[in-house]
């Protein structure tokens, strides 16, 4: 039924939003794309999984995943972005070098996992089902929803209510302004990349738990969906990514439920293509954000 599908969509959509937030945050600051974001996401799931397999509790796995992914993301900034920032072709260069970083991380995961699909041990997360008003919700779904919303709230608070966050937003792609305001741009870059990676890591753990199938290639479809979310929301727009993430989650569950199997991807990517043609700056982006060419 429709309400149940919408609820399921909301749960997945929350995770899409988390993933896309990290991506759009970096784009907002650098105006560059981090194509290794999917690999960071996958790393989150792996770190949590191996923590649990080592006999440690899941919550610790969550914490490790967030920290590890935040640091991995900073490593990507240093190795794949820093040298390019001042070059004339940073836009193109970043795409190539982060693609390279993605290949390296994914290959590493492939070696570690022996290309197998890995699973959390049974009942890592307690299986409980609630029913209310005719809707079925698992405890895990509730946890995912709460987690996503909570992280989004924290991020919003950080960006809009703390001095550091305000600086991050004010820098947004304007290195000179940040230098003038006395902020070392590197601090800003470390912070945004850490946040970006941490969010991707959290999303990775949640998706790993929910599908309970973790393998090295799991980042790619997420990266591709991440594009849909950030473009729909408007590249660089924080509220846009949140809303678009939830929308995409619901769209995906609805198409999967009501349309022939296998059509979901075609619809999602056609949507992406159409948005780019009709409204390339997205639902919440600014028309002047540079998606389109100059007047002629």
């Amino acid at each position: 039924m429709l309400a149940q599908q919408l609820l399921n969509g909301l749960v997945v959509g929350g995770v899409y939003a988390l993933f896309a937030l990290g991506f759009t945050l970096v784009f907002g600051i650098h105006h560059l794309m981090n194509l290794a974001h999917g690999a960071v996401f996958m790393t989150g799931a792996f770190v949590a999984l191996y923590t649990v397999l080592a006999g440690l509790p899941l919550w610790l796995g969550f914490v490790f995943a967030i920290l590890a992914c935040g640091l991995l993301s900073i490593l990507i900034e240093v190795t794949a972005f820093r040298r390019l920032r001042k070059s004339g072709e940073a836009e193109f260069g970043a795409i190539i070098s982060t693609l390279g970083a993605e290949l390296i991380i994914v290959t590493f995961a492939q070696i570690v996992s022996g290309s197998d699909v890995l699973r959390f041990p049974f009942e890592t997360f307690p299986v409980e089902i609630f029913e209310f008003a005719g809707l079925r919700v698992t405890l895990l779904q509730l946890f995912m929803l709460v987690c996503s919303l909570l992280l989004m709230l924290i991020l919003t608070y950080y960006l809009y209510r703390t001095p550091l966050g305000t600086r991050i937003r004010s820098v947004s792609g304007n290195e000179r302004a940040s230098v003038l305001s006395g902020v070392n741009p590197n601090t800003i870059y470390y912070q945004t990349f850490f946040l970006s990676g941490a969010l991707a890591g959290a999303a990775g753990v949640l998706i790993g738990l929910s599908f309970n199938s973790i393998q090295f290639a799991m980042g790619e479809p997420f990266l591709l969906r991440g594009f849909v979310v950030v473009v729909l929301g408007g590249m660089g727009s924080i509220p846009g990514a949140m809303v678009a993430g939830l929308l995409l989650g619901m769209l995906q569950t609805l198409t999967a439920a009501y349309l022939p199997a296998g059509l979901t991807d075609a619809i999602i990517f056609s949507l992406l293509f159409v948005i780019l043609l009709v409204r390339p700056y997205g639902l919440f982006g600014k028309e002047t954000a540079g998606a389109m060419r100059a007047e002629r």
Binding site: E91, G262, A266, F269, L276, L277
Partner: peptide, 26 residues
């Protein structure tokens, strides 16, 4: 695509490739 700039052209063509794959599978 003539309307779009650099990165956005890349994303739009990436979407095109994914559509072709999805239609091929479907």
């Amino acid at each position: 695509l003539a309307r779009l700039r650099g990165v956005f052209q890349a994303i739009a063509t990436l979407a095109f490739v994914q559509i072709v794959v999805a239609v091929g599978l479907f």
